[in-house]
Amino acid sequence: MTHNNEGAMNLNDDVQALKTIPLFAKVDAAKLKLLAFTSERLSYAEGDALFEAGDPADAAYIVMQGEADVLVRTPEGPVKVASVGQNDIVGEIGILCDVPRTATVRAASDLVTLRISKDGFFHLVTQFPEVGIEIMAELASRLHQTTQQLTELMRQRPPAR
């Protein structure tokens, strides 16, 4: 009766889990409940892909349990560039700027995510500007990191010409 056990996985548990995520810290419980209700709780086995690079971006994922690897394609094969764990949000960039997935995300263990559709995500951001600001801060910090890494690389490897 595997199916029935999963049925017992309650919406309120999801809300409790969402509350612990910094991004949603300022959002009140009723709204998180709506978010959880309009999202899909998905289980993955190790090795399953959440999405592949090049796929159309239609959702963001919040990791509820387990870990996942972020992989990019290189001529030498896929390379792991980051790892995401419980309470992390992944895949939100694609839905924000409407580009195909830039990386592949694959479950590194048994994984449970909450899949927030593009519409659900925008609903949340427009209803709670705080969430939008939180995401801006997160993105800005990632951009900062990337720029630093790039500067580092440029210093190590001067331009060819």
């Binding site: 199916h3 029935n4 999963e6 049925g7 017992a8 996985m9 309650n10 919406l11 309120n12 999801d14 959880a36 209700f37 709780r41």
Partner: peptide
């Protein structure tokens, strides 16, 4: 039950 996760339809009710 599995889609809505509202926990209203418990095993005895099933």
């Amino acid at each position: 039950p599995t889609r809505h996760r509202l926990g209203v339809i418990d095993p005895p009710l099933q």
